[in-house]
Design a binder for these strands. Structure first.
Lengths: 353, 353
DNA sequence: CTGAAAGCGCTTACAG
DNA sequence: CTGAAAGCGCTTACAG
């Protein structure tokens, strides 16, 4: 089944290839009658435009690479959806790949996307990604790209993410004002900057209430439900239950809830729980989960916007966009049986920023 | 910033373009010393292989198009992940797009992917997609493609999905054996074949226990949490609560649970609940949700496999792969306060097939 | 073992 | 308003 090319169309329509090419892009230079004739022949012959050939000639591509870790995490799914829709609406098509948080897969994906001559790349760095890792793939430097959700130390590039330190501080302050004195930070990949920032924020927030989060009260895990389950087991093996647990993400928190229940501990009642991202499921948990919203749909749309800008103007200085988080206080952190809390505003369940 | 090409490399290395091209693919015909020299020059000059140019010449592409509706649904996220990983491991790169269940977006995505000369397409058809819709995009017929999760009436193509009729029957029989006599089917897009099949299966299963699912007890909605909420409102406006609700998917079921609670009705206790997909969250609900597993990761891997086979052998007859579903009975369907159930095995919560 | 030439399917000045 | 020619960055017979 040989493919129909503009040569075939030109021959059939009795015009030159150049004319067909002009018709393809509705160039007004070609007469309406010619245009209609050529369009008719295309339809009859089942012609399909070969965008790769055109792109090669024009050296434009209209293709964006999107490298994420794992779309099964609802936060990343929201991100992915926001990118896609924004970029599609600008006429771009999206090459997508998942690293599963493995740097080897990330290397391969970046290489292959660069070989496909994408016009730009949006990257959610795999954990432990170093500046070296990003300087290695030949051509990355010359290709517009923006990092999302996780930063890479000592690497200059556009970045969009939630203000994780602030997010952590919101939760830490909330825990502090509820009177919790023994707080743990549970879950999240130790190599990710988002984790480090959230943890730092929680510490800062607690400190304002004179509370310290001890070093052994921070436990790293994979960023998924199973991570939460495993993390709780470690926490329980460690000795007495803390007053409150700050979970790295809602997904981890769901696992923490299962893990606690499996050990006969009632989330909310026996230990307060708070978390990050505030995906829609958080409010539907029992008890409803206190969580700091990090707005993936806004991060995604903003990253897409920044990338398109950079493609137009490659030489502007790298920008950092930090989106403001928002704390939603719910029953998981305000109904602990022996809570010594004092802040009744927080208990009423109303939203704070 | 001009890009380095094999011409530049050849000139610098003092060999012909052909030799560079051979080095690129480690062809043994070129002497080891030449190979090393050329590789060295490439690294020095920052050469990046242009796969598009190569593909155009060879008329191979190593690109697959993946058209899904919405990756925020965990079922589709699992699917997407399974495709990606399987295809990447076979050396393919994936162009991805989301239709949001809109046929106009689906049309555009299919067109643009065909213009990019993908070697194959995996399509989860938007609701109400007709055979006509799939015959229209020029070139789809000539491009290997497989449909997943939803069938298109009167359209011959490879198909992979769960056996939805059987899945429905499993849930219907379970409801019947629990003694429920007034059963509703709630949620799911009315135009999708998966919904029609699940509903038909539920009816079949109930019939074996002499129970009829009345026509007005089937309510269509979007396949998301909000759909479940809206559906419950409609159901309540209709009059008396049924004994049991079969939800189109777990995601819908989560919305149904919220909707019921908002109306002061306790899921499980006041009305039995069952659902489809059995995503990991189902077992973590309160009460744990009875659900029929439809194995997205297996559907995804199988669809990828089928597509690769068809690329190798375009002329084999279309195949249909139906994966066996599996019912997990949990408390949401066995602890109704005034249940008239008899099957104590089902009540014990053990798994059945 | 290496090189000169043709060609993949388009677009783009440049003539006319 | 339309056509002939060159070229985007590769690969592939074909010679030598």
């Amino acid at each position: 089944m040989k493919r129909v090319t503009i040569n075939d169309v030109a021959a059939q329509a009795g015009v030159s290839r150049a004319t067909v090419s002009l018709v393809l892009r509705d160039n007004p230079r070609v007469a309406e009658s010619t245009r209609q004739k050529v369009r008719g022949v295309m339809a009859d012959m089942g012609y399909v435009y070969d965008r790769r050939a055109a792109d090669m000639r024009t050296r434009r591509g209209m293709t964006i690479g999107l490298v994420l870790t794992d779309v099964r995490n609802p936060y990343f799914a929201e991100l992915s959806m926001a990118f896609e829709v924004t970029l599609n609406d600008h006429g771009y098509v999206v090459l997508q790949g998942y690293t599963q948080d493995e740097r080897a897969r990330q290397d391969r994906l970046l290489d292959v996307m660069l070989e496909h001559r994408v016009d730009g790349i949006i990257l959610l760095p795999a954990k432990n990604t170093s500046a070296e890792d990003l300087r290695r793939p030949a051509g990355l430097t010359a290709t517009p790209h923006v990092l999302v959700a996780r930063r890479v130390a000592d690497y200059e590039a556009d970045y969009v993410g939630a203000d994780n330190v602030r997010a952590g501080a919101l939760l830490g302050e909330h825990f502090g004002s509820e009177g919790y004195e023994d707080v743990a930070f549970l879950g999240g990949p130790v190599g990710s900057t988002a984790r480090a920032e959230r943890l730092r924020g929680v510490r800062l927030g607690l400190k304002r209430h004179g509370v310290r989060l001890e070093r052994n009260r921070s436990i790293g895990t994979a960023n998924d439900r199973q991570g939460g389950v495993t993390g709780v087991e470690q926490l329980l093996a460690q000795g007495p239950l803390p007053d409150a647990i700050a979970c790295y993400s809602d997904v981890v928190a769901f696992g923490v809830e299962s893990g606690l229940r499996a050990a006969g501990i009632v989330p909310g009642a026996d230990v307060a729980l708070g978390s990050f991202d505030d995906i829609p499921e958080a409010a539907l948990q029992h008890p409803p989960l206190t969580s700091v919203a990090t707005h993936p749909e806004r991060v995604g749309a903003e990253a897409a916007r920044l990338l398109l800008e950079r493609i137009d103007a490659p030489d502007v200085a790298p920008r950092r966009v930090l989106l403001s988080p928002r704390l939603s206080v719910r029953a998981s952190s305000t109904t602990r049986r022996d809570a010594t809390a004092s802040d009744s505003a927080a208990r009423s369940g109303r939203r704070t920023t």
